[in-house]
């Protein structure tokens, strides 16, 4: 049911974001950039939704977006815009998101990511005179299904395991 994170350490947020940044920039083995998941976007969205007061700031996500764009050789500002919108959506719906069931959360994540992808990349594609790649939307939706797995990994108390 409700997920209220009692204590979130900044170290954990930073570590997960760095890992996400590395994966988003370097990619995953066996997957091209178009089919690989935007792990950093998922992590930012997670912390923006469930991080409470420790959610990533707009300046931080903007900077992260620029880094991804520059290192990935993509259109500069696109990822920054995407991450900014994700945080904006999170700020608007975080309470309702935390109170909803897991399945509803997954559905909301899929809807958000697919809508953002369609809007941003659709606009760019139309601007350059190309067609929006539907497969990319399908891949985005498919990767969003892993949201419960991401929640499980990030929610896990690793400090307790170490002891």
């Amino acid at each position: 049911m409700a997920v209220f994170i009692q204590r979130v350490s900044n170290k954990k947020i930073a570590a997960s974001i760095i890992i996400g940044l590395i994966i988003s920039c370097v990619g995953l083995p066996g997957l091209s950039f178009s089919t690989a998941p935007d792990v950093l976007a998922l992590i930012i969205f997670y912390w923006a939704m469930l991080g409470g007061d420790n959610r990533p700031r707009l300046g931080t996500v903007f900077l992260l977006g620029l880094i991804v764009d520059f290192l990935g050789g993509q259109i500069i500002g696109l990822h920054a815009l995407k991450y900014l919108f994700l945080v904006a959506v999170a700020v608007k719906f975080d309470n309702r998101f935390r109170m909803s069931a897991r399945l509803n959360r997954v559905a909301f994540v899929i809807a958000t990511f697919v809508a953002l992808e369609a809007i941003l990349y659709g606009l760019v594609a139309s601007y350059v005179g190309a067609f929006m790649d539907i497969n990319q939307l399908v891949m985005v939706a498919a990767w969003c299904i892993t949201w419960p797995f991401l929640e499980f990994i990030i929610e896990k108390n690793y400090a307790r395991v170490d002891k």
Partner: peptide
């Protein structure tokens, strides 16, 4: 502000 900057960059 940030969105404007990002859009400008795009």
């Amino acid at each position: 502000v940030y969105s404007t900057i990002a859009l400008s960059l795009v």
